[in-house]
């Protein structure tokens, strides 16, 4: 029988993605047993993040400074802007160092069913950024779902008056994808996006 404080910590951890009650209890036991190397550093990190967490007013990234490190970085190409739906998408793209430009987080995807409309997304600020004279190309990196693609077309329409080049991510075969394992939609997209060899 644990104390109410430990139970509260277990319950809080159990609400995190990837953890259930059992794994949360294991994590709590680990933190208690290894206080010096696990609990105290975790506590410090949580306190530091809690104290400094801000949303970048330029791109919408979640960081500990405003503007964020990506927006401040002079080595990044200010002429390339990659539009993503969520911060998780930004972290996924940037973590792999595949894109040298800057980002813009929309904050979701259009969905009438979920009650998410254009004014809930950071589209006005995107159009303003695209109109600043520095941006040459906006890359729409939105998911290959109905909602993602509907959002992409809406954003492309909104960007049209700015005159900047607007592109989208290619769709089709994933790396290592075997044709007989792919779904009908992916195969159709791949066929549609075929290109000359060589």
């Amino acid at each position: 029988m644990a104390s109410p404080e430990i139970d509260a910590l277990t319950a809080a951890l159990a609400r995190l993605p990837g953890l259930g009650p059992r794994s949360a209890r294991r994590a709590v036991l680990h933190l208690i047993k290894r206080r010096e190397v696990a609990l105290f550093p975790l506590l410090e990190a949580l306190q530091a993040v809690t104290a400094n967490l801000v949303v970048c007013s330029t791109c919408g990234n979640v960081e500990t400074s405003d503007p964020c490190a990506i927006c401040r970085d002079p080595r990044r190409d200010a002429g390339l802007l990659c539009v993503v739906a969520d911060v998780a998408d930004l972290w996924a793209l940037d973590g792999k160092h595949l894109f040298s430009g800057r980002y813009h987080v929309l904050g979701g995807r259009l969905s009438a069913l979920d009650g998410i409309g254009p004014e809930d997304l950071a589209i006005t600020s995107l159009v303003m950024r695209a109109s600043d004279g520095l941006v040459r190309e906006v890359v729409l990196a939105l998911s290959a779902t109905m909602e993602g693609q509907a959002t992409m077309h809406y954003v492309a329409d909104a960007l049209r008056p700015t005159g900047v080049k607007v592109s989208q991510l290619a769709q089709g075969l994933p790396m290592g994808g075997e044709l007989d394992y792919l779904d009908e939609g992916t195969l159709a997209l791949a066929l549609n996006a075929r290109r000359p060899v060589g």
Partner: peptide, 25 residues
């Protein structure tokens, strides 16, 4: 299990907007 995929994504904004609207309505 999938019987038939809707390929509105291949056919641009009009098809997508119609599917989105009809499904939500």
């Amino acid at each position: 299990h999938l019987l038939a995929a809707n390929l509105a994504m291949l056919h641009g904004p009009v098809a997508l907007a119609v599917v989105d609207h009809v499904a939500a309505l």
